[in-house]
Computed example of a mutant assay.
Amino acid sequence: MICPVNARSTAPSVALVTCSEVPDLDPEGQHLLAALRERGLDARPVVWDDEDVDWSAPDLAVVRSTWDYATRRAEFLAWAARAAGATRLLNPLPLLEWSTDKHYLAELEAAGLPVVPSAFVEVGDEGDHPYLDVEHVVKPAVSAGSRDTLRLGAHEAARSRAHVAAVHAGGRSVLVQPYLTAVDDVGETALVFLDGELSHAMRKAALLPAGGGLVEGLFAHEDMAPREPSAAEVEVGRAVVAEAARRARAAGAEPALYARVDLLPDDDGAPRVLELELVEPSLFLDHAPGSAVRLADAVVRRLADPGGRGTAA
């Protein structure tokens, strides 16, 4: 079995978990790798589905750029369960299981959090979804990087039904949401939390063009810039991260090492949760000075905290 870290090193070892498409990590992963090594850690990128890896070797495995999980969720979660049985896995297994299926949005809403209105169409459901007569977005309930996602107009009912059927044909549930048009001008706000604390925020331009096609490749290109979030956005983001921490602790797991809360403005300008990213989100470490250092410091704190309580909310 291949050991992902240097067996001769006495430094704490950290595996940064990635996928075979980016075996050496993406640019932000390289920033984190350098920051970890500067702190004396034996850090290495490791591909999650490499069958030769000995997951008992690292002291900590941090899931980062596993961008191919969405089309292989069962396989990915089976790997995560094995890895979590061999080493300390962050984010922890219960959060990976929960957040890889967007049905979690209904649970966030039930917890009193403001989410983008969402309807789920399960395989075998009959009848049309409730947003067919307005501009809307259709995506698989298990998806990442805007893949298999369409923005559709009220005049595109046939195309919407066909896309729902195509996703169902693959055995996947469908998530349908009304398109919140304010995003075209204001953009999307991505709040990045490291060890429960807000680190930085980014503005993401609207990704889905009207009448556009499906994304090719692992993910859609994102047009980003730093953003100063509003007090209302920060309040919602913190509440979402606190709910995730509550769920982790209820499952006997430690809180998230990192989280990204993506927010859209509704028609009144109030922030609503589009996604809570706990698995493999871009954290924009290469766009926010000091953020890779903050995440590396959070990793060091977790390594020094065997109980895994962290500082997360």
Score class of each variant (00 low, 15 high):
E126H: 01
L198C: 08
S173L: 09
R272H: 14
W79C: 06
A251S: 15
A83H: 04
A57T: 06
A313V: 15
S118D: 03
W55F: 10
V22G: 07
A259D: 03
G308D: 06
H129W: 05
R260K: 15
L60P: 06
L295M: 12
V121D: 06
G211F: 03
P178Y: 01
L93W: 06
F193M: 10
R72K: 14
V123C: 08
W98E: 11
D50V: 03
H136Q: 00
Y131W: 13
E107F: 14
R272G: 15
S99H: 15
G212R: 00
D125F: 13
A166G: 10
E280F: 04
H200N: 14
T149Y: 05
P255E: 13
L89F: 02
L89S: 03
F120Q: 10
H221E: 15
P271E: 11
R203P: 12
D286K: 05
G269D: 06
V236A: 05
P178R: 04
V167N: 04
D266I: 03
F219L: 10
L264W: 05
L194H: 02
A78V: 01
D24G: 06
E122P: 05
T18M: 11
V183E: 01
G252C: 07
P265D: 08
D24M: 05
D68Q: 14
E107W: 14
A253Y: 02
A232K: 08
L113I: 04
S118A: 12
A81K: 05
A205M: 06
V5N: 12
V22C: 12
L278N: 00
H103S: 10
E277C: 07
E228T: 14
D195G: 05
W67A: 09
V236T: 06
A110L: 09
K204E: 04
A304C: 05
A84D: 07
I2N: 12
T149V: 08
Q30L: 13
F219S: 14
L96K: 02
V261H: 11
G187K: 00
V46Q: 15
L108V: 02
S118Y: 02
G310W: 14
D42C: 08
L303P: 10
A251T: 07
V134G: 06
P92W: 08
R82F: 03
A83E: 06
